[in-house]
Nucleic acid binder design. Structure first.
Lengths: 134, 134
DNA sequence: TTTTTCTGTAAGAAAAACTAACATAGATTG
DNA sequence: CAATCTATGTTAGTTTTTCTTACAGAAAAA
């Protein structure tokens, strides 16, 4: 639960994600169009990506490099060890009587265990993916 | 080292940081103006904040809540990495341009918060700092 | 060959972010 | 007390970033 929330928290803007992944905006939007990712939106309709999204984009990238097409990638991703494919909205639904502010507090509280990020045990996790790009 | 890179990596746009910290853009810019943080810039001059920046902003926020002024906060932040090991004299030396009152506030705060900041945060890493705010 | 897939590019619009300037309540200082 | 300083709000005008939509084309698939 903690993990799912943390990973689906909207954090990164389009520009950042382009830098992080090396993908173009066009590609990223196309993958969204094909339901491979579901970034949140700001009030003004700007995309905001989560760890989950970025991680998926990196997966997509490397699978594309291997010659897998989008249809194949979609299958690979959907059969991936769950963690969380759920966008924040799904969580929001469950807590439907919470205001956004309350949800924020809730998230922050729930994310106490985010220290896992630094753990050796999670060396395959998203952080190493972000920062050990080759 | 790897850690330092990660923590100083530019990741977050202004809007995200406002959400993450609850501070206004005006405040954030003002703190930068006063050299409390040094976010990177995009080619187009937009700020891009690191984990470090966000963490500092959260520190600033909670110190402000405690009544410490920016001058005091500046000193607290600059001495933070070694806060618990630093002998009083060294602190006093470093803070020679602080008024006695400010120094008093600073010291009091250090005592009161001896455990709040450092320990848990140091163990769990920056993420818990982000999301464990109250 | 024809169609589909994936990405590029361009145009126009809107959001987000920037700087600079002025305003001000609450502290601090003389 | 008056003057100044601090920290933040607000507004205006500008620039950057992002958005959608549409058209184009190479490569792969049918």
């Amino acid at each position: 639960m903690d993990d799912r929330l943390r990973r689906s928290m909207p954090l990164f803007s389009m520009g950042i994600v382009q830098n992080l992944t090396g993908l173009t905006a066009r590609q990223i939007r196309y993958y969204e169009e094909n339901a491979l990712i579901e970034p949140e939106r700001t009030e003004g309709n700007r995309r905001v990506f989560s760890f989950n999204d970025v991680e998926k984009l990196l997966d997509i990238k490397s699978l594309l490099d291997e010659g897998v097409n989008l249809a194949g990638i979609k299958h690979v991703l959907s059969s991936k060890p769950v963690e969380s494919n759920q966008p924040l909205n799904a969580v929001k639904q469950k807590k439907s009587d919470l205001s956004d502010a309350d949800l924020m507090k809730y998230l922050k509280r729930e994310l106490i265990n985010a220290g896992k990020f630094g753990d050796q045990a999670r060396i395959q996790g998203e952080f190493s993916r972000f920062f050990n790009q080759k």
